[in-house]
């Protein structure tokens, strides 16, 4: 997939109409009716897709007795923050969120930094073993996580890192996808620029941070968002590597909220918890949709 195509995709204003561009427009009503029906169909489809999220958010603001009496009362507009209060006080939800932010922050920062370094080396340097090492990095994308997580669990436990931030983060500090993506991007930067900078006496290190990184802001932003979402949404690993409540991430916290017999029917509080957990990712989606869509379109990554 070329970056151009992806840019077009991410740019609403420049959307190419499949099979429609430059076409002489059949006059008037029939075309308008066709367009209108497509618009309405899309709106209905979009509405259906958004139902689970919309229902969760509305439920989270509805008093529990009303929810349990009639789930459709969530549309009545009788709103309250009680459920958030319950979710926040009945479980250490604040702690879960802090854990998630620390875990996600470390993973995102490391993946971006290490991908910049490795992507730069693969794009710019000639060295022995380059082909092999590049295959080594890309090959790791084919290894399913299910194969690695038991040995990693044993290793991390033996290091005494279960229930620690190291345990949550260290196995994910590198991103093969990030290395590949940034290498591809760095290779599009004209080589002449590098040669000129070298003649001016700029070191490799200086060129990377003063020229390459600023030029690649878009790609780096896309990778940052991607890493953030991947880390925030992790489930299987934090589930097995933490068993102390104080070290659970938000995704795991909500699982144990459901598993708690006293709380399992408090759907108001559960939906409040779910809303809090998805809020950071929804905000990223709303404010960085362009970079996110670009990152996905360029990926090939496991969800």
């Amino acid at each position: 997939m070329t970056i151009d195509a992806v840019d077009v995709l991410a740019d609403d204003a420049a959307v190419v109409e499949v099979g429609q561009a430059n076409e002489a427009r059949p006059a008037g009503r029939r075309r308008l009716a066709g367009e209108l029906s497509v618009q309405i169909t899309l709106l209905i489809i979009g509405g259906i897709i958004a139902i689970p999220i919309v229902v969760a958010i509305f439920t989270s603001f509805t008093p529990l007795p009303e929810i349990l009496a009639d789930p459709n009362s969530i549309w009545s507009g009788n709103w309250t923050f009680d459920n958030y209060d319950t979710a926040w006080t009945a479980t250490p939800f604040g702690r879960f969120m802090i854990n998630s932010f620390i875990q996600t922050g470390i993973i995102t920062l490391a993946q971006v930094l290490f991908s910049i370094l490795a992507g730069y080396a693969f794009a710019m340097f000639e060295f022995r073993g380059r082909t092999f090492l590049f295959a080594f990095v890309l090959g790791s994308l084919m290894v399913p996580f299910e194969l690695t997580f038991i040995p990693n669990f044993v290793l991390i436990s033996n290091l005494g890192w279960a229930n620690t931030y190291q345990g949550l983060t260290v196995p994910f500090l590198a991103s093969a996808f990030g290395v590949f993506m940034l290498r591809q991007f760095f290779m599009t930067v004209p080589r002449d620029l590098y040669d000129a900078a070298r003649i001016d006496g700029i070191s490799d290190w200086g060129y990377l941070w003063k020229v390459m990184v600023p030029l690649s802001r878009g790609a780096i932003a896309a990778l940052t968002i991607f890493s953030f979402l991947g880390a925030w949404n992790q489930y299987l690993w934090p589930l097995v590597i933490t068993n102390e409540e104080s070290m659970r991430t938000a995704q795991i916290g909500i699982r144990f909220f459901l598993a708690n017999q006293e709380r399992a029917t408090d759907w108001g509080a559960i939906m409040a918890g779910a809303t809090i957990v998805m809020l950071p990712t929804l905000l990223v989606f709303l404010f960085a949709q362009r970079q996110l869509v670009r990152g996905i379109a360029m990926s090939g990554l496991k969800g």
């Binding site: 897709i49 949404n233 795991i252 699982r255 957990v277 998805m278 990712t281 989606f285 996110l292 969800g303």
Partner: peptide, 8 residues
């Protein structure tokens, strides 16, 4: 939008 929702 489902793209940013976690499996949990």
């Amino acid at each position: 939008v489902p793209v940013v929702i976690s499996s949990a």
